[in-house]
Design a protein around this nucleic acid. Structure first.
Lengths: 155, 155
DNA sequence: GCTTGACTTCAAGTTCGCTTGAAGTTGCAG
DNA sequence: CTGCAACTTCAAGCGAACTTGAAGTCAAGC
């Protein structure tokens, strides 16, 4: 028992499932913060675990570490966030996740429809449809992409 | 009208939203294939557009290009896939997408629950719960991660 | 038949998200 | 107080997914 209220980098790594090198890297990027012992070793406050869980979740939804940093800027660095702070961030996350789910659902539904109709109705099934259908709509018409915007250069 | 039945790399780029350099890269990797003119220029059969839409979709669901290549190996390279071939691939995709959606839904539901309860019930709300709760469960106990397995080294 | 833009290859460069290694320091258990 | 694992920094390396640039070739409109 007796959860230590400061974690070493090794402990944090074990708990979060991340490598210590990744944790140092995250610190360099300003995603997490550590106090130091007299000898210079890192000691992490426990809320860091929650922060890391957040980072993981964010990555799963497709954010870059830089975007995560921006998102995390709304939470206090070393203090446990209070209910209001948390709720604000959590809500914006929900929107993001919902949007992501929605785009995946759209993708899946197209596939489902395609299977359902046996892909024989060429006028109906977007996926199986030959691309001359797209050609009549001019450049940029694309199937399967749903709400995904074109991104010739995404970085 | 009159959709050309062979596309230049520039046309394919315009239609797919990808850069020509990316298309050549994909060809190097064996994801797509082109015929050549007498002069050596690429000419893509139209089904390539569908292939590209697939690649995009796959990337969105988190596959690497290498995994995509494996997935695409089930489809004929230059011929329009028939209903059976398509259905087979589409079904395996649905499973993948569904799994992805499910994990996102789980993540969102945790957030939702957290907001719903105002994050005041420390024993109930996993997200807002301080990490000493996790500590009592031993190393590896993590919140927010849901069905995501630990992956200290994920490549 | 010439011009011009779109194409060709190939090598090198870039960004992201880390990991690895070297060389040295700290902190705790015995 | 010693020994040793766990820590420290810093620089370099890596794999994925492309992009950029150079130097040259092709194809299509006038």
């Amino acid at each position: 028992m007796s959860a230590p209220d400061r974690l070493t980098i090794g402990e944090l790594a074990a708990r979060s499932g991340l490598a210590t090198s990744a944790l140092r890297y995250y610190e360099d990027l300003g995603l997490i913060h550590a106090e130091r012992t007299a000898g210079g070793q890192r000691r992490y406050p426990r809320p860091t675990l929650r922060r890391l869980a957040f980072i993981r979740a964010a990555r799963q939804v497709g954010l870059s570490l830089d975007e995560v940093r921006a998102a995390l800027a709304e939470l206090p660095a070393d203090r446990t966030p209070n209910a209001t702070e948390w709720a604000k961030v959590a809500r914006s996350w929900q929107r993001r996740i919902d949007a992501h789910i929605e785009s995946l659902r759209a993708l899946r539904d197209r596939l489902t429809g395609c299977i359902g109709c046996g892909c024989l109705s060429l006028t109906k099934c977007a996926l199986y449809n030959p691309s001359d259908q797209a050609a009549t709509k001019g450049p940029g018409a694309r199937y399967l992409l749903g709400d995904t915007p074109p991104r010739p250069r995404e970085r």
